[in-house]
Amino acid sequence: MDPEPMSVELRAPAHLVSRRAIAFWTVRALIGWIVIVGIQLVILIASGSTHHRWVNVLILACSVLLGAVHLIVMPRWRYRVHRWEITRTACYSQSGWITQERRIAPLSRIQTVDSERGPLEQLFKLANITVTTASAAGAIKIHGLDSSAADRIVHELTTIAALDGGDAT
């Protein structure tokens, strides 16, 4: 149907998220790893000097190594992937790192726009936005936005979405 369907591709959304998101993702993952390593340390100390001790030490060493790689690679990779764009007609986001996902929804189908700041996000002056549609599978989430930028986006989106009537299904 298209004159040359092979010649076009979907480009990534225009805007990157805040650079502080790298630190945020690092700290968030770090907390998880501290818990994992901490539990292992407790087990190691509690088990005393049995002859299976080296297995515990090996698992601990692997966890520390894996954690370090995760903490170095994941936030930077995410920062390069996470992008967003809102035009007059559509909301478009890209997220993930190993598995990446792009989500597109027309503004006419938007039902609610929520912005949320967790305690950790507040620390880094970040916010995330969830744009929901009538489909349970179609919510668009933008993580790691600068707080003030998030407020601006929410305001814009609600203004545009309010103009549209209908039940958006």
Binding site: T99, R102, A105, T133, A134, G138
Partner: peptide
């Protein structure tokens, strides 16, 4: 008409 939006998901292998 009933399609609201689209999700395009790609794993590393799929990419």
């Amino acid at each position: 008409e009933g399609i609201i939006g689209w999700n395009i998901r790609r794993t590393m292998f799929q990419r």
